[in-house]
Amino acid sequence: MSLATLLVLADGRLPAGGHAHSGGLEAQVSAGRVRDLDDVAAFLRGKLATSGLVAAAFAAAACRRPGRWAELDGGLDARTPSPALRKASRAQGRALLRAGRAMWALPPIGREPHQPTALGVLAHAAGLGPEEAAVAAAHGTTTGAASAAVRLLALDPYAVHALLARLAPACDRIAGEAARHADDAVNDLPAAGAPLLDIGAEHHATWEVRLFAS
């Protein structure tokens, strides 16, 4: 396992479409539920424990068994009731594959898989293991929304990064828990839902004017 390779995969500057997604934050900012740094912290903790855990578990599972990507994708479909979130996840999966193909030799995978599935398959192709795939997924869950928070709320970027540093142990813990599921049957993988992320994503998709794709 190459730590530098993991950093390449988890780098926020990876051209994989993430910058256009707020991870559900824009909807909650607009609804008035996220106004300041403390709210962002609570948002990120909740997101990490729910969709972060699911993404990390599926990334770990896809890394362990890339040939089962279609079955894992079906599992993510069943865990993603919001069509807007399914679309956002598949758009980011497709973009990630585009970047991944330029970096590593990828095994066969569909054109537009869910983002965690694509991430796991990339991790596998890069010679990384399920735990690394999981930590990249969990990390990406928090950093994408944190970067959107800086832009949407004009927060102090140092304060936001201090928050990310405080969340790092939680990221590791979630990733560890996720990786322990890497061999589970798809139905037994974590399915922690986040009702406000679902509802917010659907509402966001109806707006005429928005800054982020999701």
């Binding site: 051209p15 479409g17 910058h19 256009a20 959107a148 832009r151 949407l152 800054l211 794709a213």
Partner: peptide
């Protein structure tokens, strides 16, 4: 959609445009 950063979408991360 460009997530507040139109220059990123045409220069640094062109994936959404390519799609």
């Amino acid at each position: 959609e460009t997530g507040c950063c139109p220059h990123t979408a045409i220069r640094d991360d062109i994936s959404a445009n390519l799609d």
